[in-house]
Simulated scan of single mutants.
Amino acid sequence: MEDIHWDDILYDIEEQRAVLLLGHNFLPNAHEQLNAALTEKLGDKLLHFYTRDGLFLFKDSDAKTTAQQVAARFFKNNPPEDAILKKIAEMPFRLMVSTNPDKFLLDAFAQYKLNLQFDYFSSNNKEQEYKIERPSEENPLLYNICGSVEDQESLILDYDDLFKMLKTLLTDLKVPNEIRMPLMKTNTYIFVGFHFERWYTQLFLRYLNMNENQFDNNNRNYVLKTTFQDADMERFFLQQFNIKFIGADWSFFEELHRRFAEKYPAKLRKLINQLSPTAATIDQLVAKSEYDSAFSMLKIFESQFDSDDQQLLTMTQSTYSQYLQDKKEGIVLTEHLNSALARVRKNILELSQKLQ
């Protein structure tokens, strides 16, 4: 493994010449969990799940329409850890590109009272056209290149969706200049959670440097959380795309954050968390997985909730009780357990933010 050129990476981030790219594993095991949810909903109308590519095959158009609805709900209710969202929000990337359709990062920026523009790619007519400006340190941009949960037809679920997306993307017909220009000015790409053995990921890499004849040393592409299992393929990929593998998991990003904070402390975004002391305490309990204590505090202040939120609290407690029972009996798939616990976490945090 090559030495990590920390000064180069940190300098490019400070100079707004670095882009953060979030792959499918930014939401760990998302496709496997989505496969379980679709199987439960569609039964034999879900003909196949292509594990290697994370894509599905549906029996007919009705099945696909249902799948789009299920997938949109799934990606709304299965967030990554709050801690990593906070660290990303603090880092002064002007452009973040995600291959996931969720908007959790957008929600995190809003929670901390930070500006963040949002737009997404769709090979179809979009549900909503966003007016965006050239991203900057003060007004960054999140761009979902594989659609958005708010627009079900934009989601990439099967090979038809993927081919349409690649055809449109590689002809550069629908990618705004506000996205393309920062990519052209980028020296360092930092990848998190990508499957680099997937053929369409390699096409995506080619798109990133489509204005270059080839990947060369002008662009430093740093990769985290890789999935190579074949040594020969890894060597070929390193040579072909000039990728430097410098981390295996999120611990690298945390070190990147730490080093940047030490060298450029004034450049970290200042987060404003306006949660009440009670809400902050509940958030801390959730972070430590102390859900019973979190529910106890919510019950104490239940009178502050309206009837809908009181009903949500009751429903969430019931979901958590069922989760504990299913986990104890061991008869429910791990994917379903993870999904249920994610809903519980999400609902608790939503309710806590409404407390005075």
Rank of each mutant, 00 (worst) to 15 (best):
K167A: 10
K167F: 14
T168C: 12
T168G: 04
D172W: 07
D172P: 05
D172M: 10
D172E: 14
P176E: 04
P176T: 01
N177Q: 09
N177R: 03
N177A: 08
N177I: 02
E178Q: 15
I179E: 00
R180E: 05
M181I: 08
P182C: 03
L183I: 13
M184E: 14
K185S: 11
K185A: 12
K185L: 11
T186C: 03
N187K: 15
N187Q: 15
T188L: 00
I190C: 01
I190E: 00
I190V: 12
V192F: 05
V192W: 01
G193W: 03
G193M: 01
F194Y: 10
F194K: 02
F196D: 04
F196R: 11
F196Q: 09
R198L: 04
W199S: 14
W199P: 08
Y200I: 06
T201D: 09
L203H: 13
F204P: 02
F204Y: 06
L205D: 02
L205Y: 01
R206L: 07
Y207Q: 10
Y207W: 14
L208F: 07
N209Q: 10
N211P: 05
N211V: 05
N211I: 06
E212D: 15
Q214N: 05
Q214C: 05
D216W: 05
D216F: 12
D216V: 08
D216T: 14
N217I: 12
N218F: 10
N219W: 07
R220K: 12
R220P: 00
R220Q: 13
V223L: 04
L224P: 00
L224V: 00
K225N: 06
T226Q: 08
T227V: 06
T227G: 02
T227I: 02
F228S: 06
Q229W: 11
Q229K: 15
D230M: 09
D230N: 15
D230S: 13
D230W: 10
D232N: 13
M233D: 11
R235M: 09
F236E: 11
F236W: 15
F237Y: 10
L238N: 11
L238I: 15
Q239P: 00
Q239M: 09
Q239K: 14
Q239S: 14
Q239W: 10
Q240C: 12
F241K: 04
F241A: 02
F241C: 04
N242I: 03
K244E: 12
K244V: 10
K244L: 07
I246A: 00
D249A: 00
W250F: 14
W250A: 07
W250Y: 12
S251L: 03
F253K: 03
E255Q: 07
L256M: 11
L256W: 00
L256C: 10
H257Q: 09
H257W: 10
H257T: 02
H257S: 03
R258H: 02
R259N: 10
F260C: 11
A261V: 02
A261S: 15
A261I: 05
A261D: 01
E262L: 11
K263S: 10
Y264K: 05
Y264T: 07
Y264A: 06
P265V: 00
K267V: 03
